[in-house]
């Protein structure tokens, strides 16, 4: 009798756990759309790619454009700025990256970066700070002329978005 009682209890436990598991999966499946609606919607995602003609930017000047709602710097760097960025030994960098790796071959004068400080997302101020690049006024992060983090709380370099030069002056971001 004892084994039978044990047996039926095991079977009951199984049904109990199985029911609970199905209910749990159902609950998650119900809750997920309620959470997922918070994610970027189709109209936001539709702005994921833009084109911009850089020919109007003179050397030594920058423009800020919007890509996916984020400000993006396009800087036409001077030869001195490029030389300064390339002269930095990699072991001095918190987030090591060469200047070449942050630009496109044949378009080294163009530096294109998301203009959000990698610390907490403020827009850094151009051509200021201790390294002639960018300075974030919020918490004091300094970036160099290649947008690499040199000093302050930001953990990484300014982010280079995915982009390509479609022609010599037309750039597609995203």
């Amino acid at each position: 009798m004892a084994t039978q009682a044990q047996h039926s209890r095991t079977r009951r436990d199984f049904i109990f756990v199985a029911t609970g598991a199905v209910a749990g999966v159902g609950a998650v499946a119900t809750v997920w759309p309620l959470i997922n609606q918070l994610n970027p919607d189709a109209s936001t995602l539709a702005l994921a790619s833009i084109e911009f003609d850089v020919s109007s930017i003179p050397e030594g000047q920058s423009v800020t454009i919007l890509w996916r709602g984020l400000p993006v710097f396009i800087r036409h760097r001077t030869a001195a700025e490029i030389a300064e960025a390339r002269a930095v030994p990699l072991n001095e960098l918190k987030d090591p990256a060469t200047d070449e790796a942050r630009t496109k071959v044949g378009h080294e004068q163009w530096l294109i970066m998301i203009a959000s400080c990698t610390h907490l997302g403020c827009v850094p101020v151009g051509q200021s700070g201790d390294f002639d690049g960018w300075f974030c006024p919020c918490h004091g992060s300094h970036y160099d002329t290649a947008g690499r983090i040199r000093k302050g709380p930001a953990p990484t370099n300014l982010v280079v978005p995915p982009y390509d030069f479609l022609s010599d002056t037309l750039v597609q971001i995203g």
Binding site: N39, P40, D41, T44, R68, G69, L120, G121, C122, C138
Partner: peptide, 30 residues
């Protein structure tokens, strides 16, 4: 912008979580 960015510091899930909280890639209408 700054406060939602705090969540981006969380390893692995940081960036998806940031976009989930903002409803976009930056702070906007959503």
């Amino acid at each position: 912008t700054v406060i939602t960015n705090i969540f981006a510091a969380i390893p692995v899930i940081g960036t998806p979580l940031l976009e989930l909280l903002r409803g976009g890639f930056s702070v906007g209408n959503p």
